[in-house]
Amino acid sequence: MTYTFDFMAVRHGLGVLFDGLLVTLELTVAANVIGLTFGFGLALLVMHRWAVLRWPASLFVEFFRCTPAIIQIVWFFYCVPMLFDVYLDAMTMGILALACNLTAFNAEAYRAAIQAVPRDYRDAGIALGLNGWQRIRYIVLPTAFRAALPVLVSNGIGIFQQTALVAIVALQDLMYMGKSLATESYRPIETFTVVALIYFAVSFPVSQLASWFEHRRDRLAR
């Protein structure tokens, strides 16, 4: 069977897809803002010397890293209202679910980077007479943040792709719009191809940016 492509069929739906993309981007940006800040705090808790803080934080990180994102999202949408008796709009729920996932992944990236700061640097800080806070502020954090940057960016792209999952719980993002357009137009191939290309067009440049950061970091480290 030969299939005749008709990308024109998708053209009139591009506006709808664009609306969807805006929702997708909104989810991504919001989740990243939360994930970057809370991830850092969580990383500090994971490394805290008090076990009371360390254990719950580690559990949170491991749980979100070791379960499928789709179940986290479904769980959020069904269970959070029942458990906590709060009813938020779908967008907020979507953002919170994705942000929790990203917070866990970013916490791990921050932790690995902070612990990878060579001991020599801290020793040099002591030798230069910097106090504990100064060593963290001027030596550990800048080094660690630079080391973590590529991973943080690629986690950010990961969450951009994971936003497609909220379509399942009926948030009208790019994936959702694509699905309904595919059903309406009877043109699934063209629609899903275009949807895939849109996702790709956004994440590819950013991932190139991440590898550029990585490249630059490795060069500076030498």
């Binding site: 299939y3 792709q161 994971q162 497609a164 994936m175 694509g178 191939i189 790709f200």
Partner: peptide
């Protein structure tokens, strides 16, 4: 690596049979 797995899955699920 640059597209969501769920889009890939839908693509294969809906499109591959049509194409092949």
């Amino acid at each position: 690596r640059g597209t969501p797995v769920i889009v890939q899955l839908f693509w294969v699920f809906f499109c591959l049979p049509l194409l092949l």
